[in-house]
Structure formats: C-alpha cells, structure tokens
Design a protein around this nucleic acid. Structure first.
Lengths: 213, 213
DNA sequence: GACTCGACTTAGGCGAGCCTAACAAATTCC
DNA sequence: GGAATTTGTTAGGCTCGCCTAAGTCGAGTC
C-alpha cells in the first residue's frame, strides 16, 4: 500500500505530466513545496517500488502500476471535492486543501459507495474529468478573440495551490459551465460579458482558464 | 496539531477511562495492538506536549487540553460512523475501521458541516453518545432477569475491535434501539424475544451489550 | 525471605519523510 | 566558448512511530 506522502507525489506526477507535458524533480519540488533532496529521495523510493521509471534525461514516467495508483488517487481527489461541494455545501473554489486530506482515507469500497451517492460524477467541481473520462478539447480563455462566445470548461489542478485564484475567478462570475462572450482585450486585461454583466479580468488569469467553443 | 497516531492514543485513553474506569499503558498496548515500548514512548510524547499526565501509580490522565483533543477525535469518530451509515449506506456493524481512517482527515469546518448534514446526531450507530451528551443510565443485557423487557442502548467502543462480534449481534436481531424481552437463561446462553422472534445469545456476548429498562 | 508475575523502561535498530549545506553535472545564455 | 543558471545528488541530521531483547521494579504469593 502507498502512503499518503507517496500518493501525493504520484498525484503530482500525474497532474504535471497531464497538464504540462512532463514531470521532472525540480517541478515536483515546487509543486509540492518540499526541498529537492526530499523529492530525489521519494522518487528513488517510488522507483524501487516499481511505480515510476526515469528516462535518460531523468524525466519521470509512471509505470503501468504507477499509473493505476496515480489514477486512483486523482479519482479519489476529484470525488472528494465533489463530496465537499455537493454534500457538505463547500463553495466550489474552496475544496482543494480539504480534499487533499480525505482522499487518502478512502478505501475502494468507500470510493465506490461515494461515487454512487454522488450520482457517478464525470468531473470535479473545477471541471477536471475523472481519470478515464475523455477530456473535451479546449483552448485558454486568453486565446478567445473579441466577439467570440465560449463556455468555461475547466481550471487545471496545476493552479489550485495559487492562493485566491479560484476565489478571484468566482468573484468575476467565472465558474465551470458558465457561458461568456469576449468583448475586448486591452493592456493586460480582458473585458467580457458573463450572465449579462461585464467583467474585467487579468489576462494572466485568463490564460489559466480552459474554455470550449 | 496532533498526528493521526497521537489522536489514536488519545481516543484509546478516553475510551478506556470512560468504559473501564482507568487507562494504563499495558491496556493501551493491548487495545491499540502495539508493543509496550511503543506506548511508553508515545505517552511520554503526549506528556511532553501537555496532553496527559501520570499519577503516582502511573495511571494516565488527560489534561484539560488533552481532554478537549480526545473529545474532538471521539466526536469525529462517531460522526464519521454516522456518515458511513447514513450517507454511504454501510451496515451499522461495519463502520469502525473505515471511520478510523477518515476521522483524522476532518477539519473543524468539515466536522461542523458534516454534523449539520447529518442532522446533529446525538450518538454513533452503536449507540455511543457524542462527547458532551449525557449518557442514558444502563445495565448489561446479561443482567436482565427473565420476564423483563429492555431496549438496547449501546455497544461500547471497547469491543469494536473484536472480529465478528457486532455482525453476530446483528444476525440475532440485536441492534441499538431494538426492544426485547428476556425469556430464560440456561448454561451460558440467553433466550430472548426480539421483534416477535426468539433468539439464543451467548451470555459472554450479552455482557457486552448495554440496555435500558 | 525468595519467587514470580505484571508493568514499565532502556537500549539498539529500522524506515519514512523532511531539512540544510555543499557539490557535481547539464543547460542555457551571452 | 565560457559564465551563469538550473538541476540533481551526497552527506549529515532531525522527528515520528514502530519493533525486539533485556532489563528493572513492585506487589503478591508460597
């Protein structure tokens, strides 16, 4: 059985590989907020346990077993977030830390029962699909041209650590599932219409939001 | 903050003191299934952290701070059990191990939200009251005289580790809240009527069930 | 008074996870 | 090409939580 800590690493490896293309130790250290030697050590433990492998350039890859374990913890994470929102009534933007705690406590039976109790959800409250569910093709909100319409699809897990980011989006009316129209883009800000109201959004934030046409 | 392991010890100290009158290291080692030196070490850590104190005969006592922490973890445990039964649909006798996992993951806010989602329950599925709730006066089922009626009030946490015990009770129709009538007692067995049916119960098991008149 | 039993501690070890400091290797940049 | 930055590792150290083996200590018992 994997420990909480190693599950945390597998989750990070999965997320970084999924959302940025590859996972290396330095990125993991930043993402997990631990020192490089701590990462180095843990990666060697995970390699010893057959969950990951390094290529010649030291990029981390999940083995089949590691991928299964990573998908399991990611699924439990997203399920936990749904639980927090749908059953406990948490706001959608305030689930990450809390889910981080309970995901490790879920047994396979609890996971299955929770999945059914939640109506077999296909994505977490940030719009990220359960592992195995095909992701909708998306582009960044920042790439939407003035006059175009778009629907907010998801905010990648990558950014969930950034303090206040999700709450900021929520404050501007931007939640997964919301439809919007791009109005104009001017000096680092985007003007867009959401639910009849106009909002002003920083474009570095808009680059972190994925939309579909 | 207390770790999972130290919470487990505080919970055990609370339970043993509550249900057997006092807590000493040797009983804790049995209850928690760890070695005596492991207990000795942990108790000294808890003492160092101001959560417990020893008296001159080495009996363990909770300090005010320790009592608060112990009540918190016991409450989270019982709340977790209710969650497993009421929301996830677990059978009442199969909650202990699973609750043991999630109780440590609950933050104060999650605890409060869960409490409300569950309708402010006053007891766990085994009938044990939330800390702070006054316990109903009880006697053991084994002490009920033939001809007497009784209602099953609770099965102490003390016995939750015993494999198959709760499931055995359930199989004989004995659940918290159930009314029964003692019929007769004969060579180590009790004959009693539950919901119109007669059942035969081992008296060593009946001694572990608390009832009210 | 000696013995035994139960309770507790000491000593020594181990793995997981984390840290800092220092260094080696590989890139990237100018 | 050489310097600077990024990346990774080694070395040494820490706490927590667990283990076994080998005591010690006290309370009863014979």
């Amino acid at each position: 059985m994997s420990s909480s800590a190693s599950e945390e690493y597998l989750q990070a490896i999965y997320t970084l590989a999924d959302e940025t293309g590859s996972a290396i130790a330095a990125r993991l250290a930043e993402f997990l907020r631990v020192s490089p030697p701590a990462v180095s050590e843990m990666l060697h433990r995970l390699e010893r346990d057959g969950l990951i492998a390094f290529d010649d350039r030291k990029v981390v890859h999940l083995t089949n077993e590691g991928r299964t374990a990573a998908e399991s913890i990611v699924r439990r994470h997203r399920l936990s977030e749904r639980f927090l929102v749908d059953i406990l009534g948490y706001p959608w933007w305030q689930t990450h830390e809390e889910a981080e705690r309970i995901e490790h406590a879920l047994t396979p039976e609890m996971e299955e029962r929770l999945r059914r109790a939640l109506g077999d959800p296909q994505a977490c409250p940030h719009g990220n699909p359960m592992p195995g569910v095909a992701a909708t093709p998306t582009r960044t909100l920042g790439s939407v041209a003035p006059g175009e319409d778009a629907t907010i699809e998801r905010i990648p897990d990558q950014f969930e650590h950034e303090p206040g980011f999700l709450e900021y989006l929520d404050g501007e009316g931007m939640r997964p599932g919301v439809e919007l129209r791009m109005i104009e883009r001017r000096d680092g800000r985007l003007r867009l219409r959401v639910a009849g109201e106009e909002h002003d959004v920083r474009s570095d934030c808009a680059d972190k939001v994925l939309v579909r046409a």
